[in-house]
Amino acid sequence: MAEIGKVRIRVPSSIKQGDVVRVRALVIHPMEIVQRRDGKPVDKNYHFIHKVVVTYNGREILAAETTQSVSENPFFAFTFRATEPGTLKIAFLDTHGGKYEGTVDIKFS
């Protein structure tokens, strides 16, 4: 569990200006599911990622609301248009107030 919040982001090794780049991101997280006792769901503060925000040079390009129907160690894929060099940042927010961020530098070759 010590690895909770470890973010891994993969982008293609060579990016040209104007390319539509496909990004794959993974975060280590348990995504706790609803427990049931006698068929009734237990009410407690379940620990799962409920929001994902992707920003590119400070501008938000994608936001996602996620639920426990997303698997453990969630994986997301998306694309973005690389218009300028800079930083792509992905932030994962969970229900216990955790914020896990991963960044990747976008450079043109």
């Binding site: 539509v20 780049v21 496909r22 794959r24 599911i33 590119y56 501008r59 938000e60 390009i61 994608l62 936001a63 996602a64 609301e65 996620t66 639920t67 426990q68 129907s69 997303v70 698997s71 969630p74 994986f75 997301f76 894929a77 998306f78 694309t79 973005f80 248009r81 218009t83």
Partner: peptide
């Protein structure tokens, strides 16, 4: 209801992927 993505034009294509349960 599993996931809701909010996209912007800066993405270039409307593609999203995730792993579901």
């Amino acid at each position: 209801m599993n996931a809701k993505f909010t996209l912007t034009a800066a993405m270039g294509t409307a593609l999203v992927g995730a792993n579901l349960r």
